[in-house]
Design a protein around this nucleic acid. Structure first.
Lengths: 141, 141
DNA sequence: AGAATTGTGGGGAAAAGTGGGGAAATAGGG
DNA sequence: CCCTATTTCCCCACTTTTCCCCACAATTCT
């Protein structure tokens, strides 16, 4: 389970630390991929990534669909791990896609971790909070 | 079950004690999150937090909704526990959100505990007292 | 009144954030 | 094919922050 929102510096080499609590849940390495739909980088523990890609492959019925899916999912994915200081290096295509400059917001999102630029995160947060309150209202919690 | 209203000092390191009666119900640790809708910090015992987040996740219909909701719920949440003196440390983003300075009002709210700034709490209390009689009426209680 | 528990504050050790340097690997040109 | 230039990766070092422990003052309970 991943919690919390942490701002981190991205150094000139494109390296970003993750919070120690996150690292401890990702010792076997991580997969970086484009956020699905959102302008962010998704970071999955390898086990969770396998679960996710398997369930997607099971849903693709036609060969054409499957190929398209493979390109979309695996095409943007990078496997990596932590250096001695607990940092991962962001491949340039992904960093560019998410618009991340010298600061990244690391967000815990339950099963995975997301990396956002400051601006995109601010926008996403406000819209997510609005939606959350609606769901909570309808839920009566 | 959490009752009552207690003012506590927040020291320079952002630490707040909780009343001993509350601590004894939270030995397994707590989750800090934004109060839903209100400008306060919500403190959940881990068991209650799991119940709540699971039921909310079950409510989201689409994948996009689910991701957004996860972000809103988990992104603002922090896992923590008590130090030897029965205090918890408030992460800066949450303290800032709730506008808590050097004093926090600790409020028991049945399933969870809430932390308020003096000002926000005064406003909330008066408006709650005004509306309570109406709400009770509509319940037929 | 005495003892225990609780509120409050601070100091020191450990860990985490940040930045830079050097070696190995890769790619490109001669 | 070899040499060179560039990039990538790993390791080292420093600064800051966090966490844990100790200590005192105040309040409550016996």
């Amino acid at each position: 389970m991943f919690f919390g929102e942490y701002p981190y510096k991205v150094d000139e080499k494109g390296r970003v630390p993750l919070p120690p609590k996150f690292r401890r849940q990702m010792r076997e390495g991580v997969i970086l991929a484009k956020g699905m739909g959102e302008k962010c980088i998704a970071v999955y523990p390898v086990a969770e990534w396998k679960r996710l890609s398997d369930s997607l492959a099971a849903k693709a019925v036609t060969q054409a669909n499957l190929r398209k899916l493979n390109r979309a999912i695996f095409g943007s994915a990078f496997s990596t791990s932590f250096d001695g200081q607990g940092r991962i290096t962001l491949p340039y295509p992904l960093r560019d896609y998410a618009g991340i400059g010298d600061t990244a917001i690391v967000v815990g999102a339950n099963k995975c971790v997301e990396l956002w630029s400051e601006d995109e995160w601010k926008a996403e947060k406000t819209s997510a909070e609005e939606q959350a309150s609606q769901i909570i209202e309808s839920f009566g919690a």
